[in-house]
């Protein structure tokens, strides 16, 4: 043993081949275990970071935010979700989740409250929206769980709606927020994605009024995001330069951006 330590500080030229092998092996393994130990320490550190309300820690959030900055650069009004012939659309469409739809609801009294930057509220009913040009889209709807389904939706382009109601100041803000009438479900969306030409305020599925479980009378369809952002049954619409609240991000640890 003592010899070995002596060898560590002896030039290789003064050692036998066997001694050199032994010395180099020990040094290499020392660094190997140091590296692996460092990796384990780093992992343990990451796993021990306190979580925010959404079960996600701040180092993880910050990388997700960097990802957003990087991949947001790809987002373009020219990059459209692929569209399919109507014949390929699923009928009935898959129903997944009823958050925000469980509270008793009066469809006749429904109005969408658009809370403007000035604080005024614009109250709109379905007929108001149906007066605007209708757009239909058949695209592959993608759930964050991993399934996808080609579905056929109809409604008014969100960007066209904003223009028609003179919501230019609001469209210039950074985030859109939507919540269900019972406020149990809410999503936050970056404005460039909201203004993407395929984003719809949607009132039709397969050419029929939305079924109750698909968010009658009005829902969002936003093909550049996972389905979690396509909120069913819009109650309030609001705008902010800060991130608007988002159920899955704030409570369940999902990425806020969730862009496709």
């Amino acid at each position: 043993m003592a010899n070995f330590f002596k060898n560590l500080f002896t030039r290789n030229s003064g050692l036998t081949t066997s001694q050199v092998i032994e010395k180099k092996t020990v040094i290499s393994f020392f660094f190997f275990f140091l590296f692996m130990g460092g990796a384990i320490a780093g992992w343990t550190w990451l796993r021990r970071q306190p979580s925010d309300s959404g079960k996600t820690s701040s180092p993880i959030r910050s990388v997700l935010d960097v990802n957003e900055k990087i991949f947001d650069g790809l987002l373009s009004d020219k990059h459209l979700a692929k569209e399919y012939p109507v014949s390929q659309a699923a009928n009935p469409a898959r129903v997944n989740g009823d958050l925000g739809l469980k509270t008793p609801f009066d469809p006749v009294a429904w109005k969408m409250n658009v809370i403007k930057a000035s604080g005024d509220t614009l109250k709109l009913n379905l007929d108001d929206l149906k007066k605007l040009p209708k757009t239909e889209i058949v695209f592959n709807f993608k759930c964050i769980e991993g399934w996808s389904q080609v579905t056929h939706w109809g409604g008014v382009r969100f960007s066209a709606f904003m223009k028609a109601y003179g919501l230019d100041e609001e469209a210039a803000m950074k985030y859109l927020g939507l919540s269900t009438p019972d406020k149990q479900y809410y999503v936050g969306i970056d404005m460039p994605s909201a203004l993407h030409p395929q984003t719809l305020l949607c009132y039709e599925l397969n050419g029929q009024p939305l079924p109750m479980n698909q968010g009658y009378p009005l829902r969002l369809i936003i093909p550049v995001k996972y389905g979690v952002k396509s909120l069913k049954r819009i109650g309030d619409m609001y705008f902010s330069n800060q991130r608007t609240p988002d159920y899955w991000s704030d409570k369940k640890g999902y990425d806020y951006y969730s862009g496709l």
Binding site: F71, H79, V224, L260
Partner: peptide, 18 residues
């Protein structure tokens, strides 16, 4: 599958999202 809309060509290259 991370950016199937923005990188639609790549998705198509692999035979679609699924």
């Amino acid at each position: 599958i991370y950016k199937p809309v923005q990188l639609e060509w790549l998705c198509t290259l692999f035979g679609g999202y699924k």
